[in-house]
Design a binder for these strands. Structure first.
Lengths: 257, 257
DNA sequence: CGTAATTTGTACGTATGTATG
DNA sequence: TCATACATACGTACAAATTAC
């Protein structure tokens, strides 16, 4: 029994926190991959040389923060991307506060190697002439095009993504592709909202008769250690449907509030 | 010692959940008001006839969900509105992903009794000719007007709010006024985003030379039992600054991830 | 199909550490 | 310095879900 936590006496850092960090470290290094089962509480308690209670606290914290999924009777598993964690998506397109969410369908328009676009290289921590892929997609609802989405990815991280079959892009969300094929789960993301006059590409792709105001959403998706994965610009036609943010609810123990 | 939890044996509902509900119930009824100190763990354990551990679990859940604030050595206190819970606000106006948040200042433009505006009465669960107050405010940054914000409140809930001094509206956020003066904390809110051509009021108040695209944010703020408090339309000029959503982080125990 | 083994969930009791006033 | 109240930590027991036999 090799206790990994050599000593905590004399320190003010709680043991469960050290365990959290240790587990998270293994996940970040890919030692424990998304979907994988990690050792049970009792086993971890032995490994770390602490009580099951301390391991439980650590695992509950990591579960609450979305890094682990715990299932009674089965075990504890490494979670994937943030975005897919909740059953429902964070954003939906609705016509009113009361109406239900409508599912959008995706169509891949183009995937192309590009390089050196000024502010985007900065977001992706690439040099000014950095090699990127540009993924252009259209989101439609009932035959009408609602969103033009343009994603930029570092070629370094997503080798040969342009060789993948189109189907990969249309049957799954992009973050799922990152996670499954490239082992890069999305851990957090930032968003910026603004309103713009529709640029020409948007007028074409969204089949607008003229330049109308569009909701522009810029998103930066990051994985572990704040490494940027994707910078995305979405132009949303909010004439009929508006972008709705679900009220956030966190789960705590199994019986949340 | 009058045990409030008569029995849980034979049921599948955990004790800590019943305690949660009981505490939350007292808060909703105003028995324990925002800011007030609630009995310590040991005392509650005696009241409910359970162990301190069960009370702790219940209180941690309520703390994580934002209904309670716990301070080591002081006690547990009833929290106020969601919006002010985190130190930083959920939304900020920035020019770029990297830039820091800029503090906006508020100016009350007008507060007026109005009635029967079609979809808004529905949002506020008022009859079609319902009596409301309309609060018009301008948010500025460095002398330039960024946001025109129009709030609608039910007169029934906010009696004589139009008699309050202007200062009340300009020195504090609106949710703070709701909570402090009317004892109505904001428990959750929904938002809808869209892009619109600036309407005439916005052109005037935001001193626009012409009609430009504006980010329109509709918000519905709710208190306990999903009672609507405020329906707000914000027109944001995103020419220079964009609406930025902070990456969400939840706290679990004191030493979060 | 029932039974046992595994694993997490709930619950109790106790002891000690640490922040607050 | 001391009492109070929450935080951390241990150990134990049983319940409930899942899987394998």
């Amino acid at each position: 029994m090799s206790h990994e936590l050599v000593k905590t006496k004399g320190t003010q850092i709680p043991r469960y926190y050290l365990i959290q960090r240790s587990i998270l470290n293994r996940i970040e290094k890919g030692e424990w991959a998304p979907g994988e089962k990690i050792p049970p509480e009792k086993e971890l308690a032995a490994i770390f040389g602490v009580s099951v209670g301390s391991v439980k606290t650590a695992m509950l914290n990591l579960s609450n923060s979305g890094f682990l999924n715990r299932v009674q009777g089965k075990g504890t598993f490494v979670a994937g991307s943030v975005i897919g964690r909740d059953r429902r998506r964070l954003y939906n397109f609705v016509s009113d506060f009361e109406t239900q969410n409508e599912p959008l369908s995706v169509k891949l328009q183009e995937i192309k190697a590009v390089e050196g676009i000024a502010p985007i290289c900065g977001y992706l921590t690439l040099p000014p002439n950095g090699q990127m892929f540009r993924v252009t997609r259209i989101f439609t609802l009932h035959e009408s095009s609602i969103i033009l989405s343009i994603s930029y990815l570092a070629q370094r991280l997503f080798k040969d993504i342009d060789k993948l079959p189109r189907d990969f892009f249309e049957s799954n969300p992009l973050y799922k592709l990152f996670e499954d094929t490239y082992k890069l789960p999305t851990i957090r993301y930032q968003e910026m909202f603004s309103a713009v006059q529709a640029p020409v590409e948007a007028v074409n792709f969204l089949q607008l008769s003229e330049s109308v105001p569009l909701l522009k959403v810029e998103m930066l998706a990051l994985t572990f250690k704040n490494v940027p994965l994707e910078y995305r610009i979405s132009y949303c036609n909010t004439k009929d449907l508006k972008l709705f943010r679900m009220p956030f609810r966190m789960k705590t123990h199994r019986w949340g509030v």
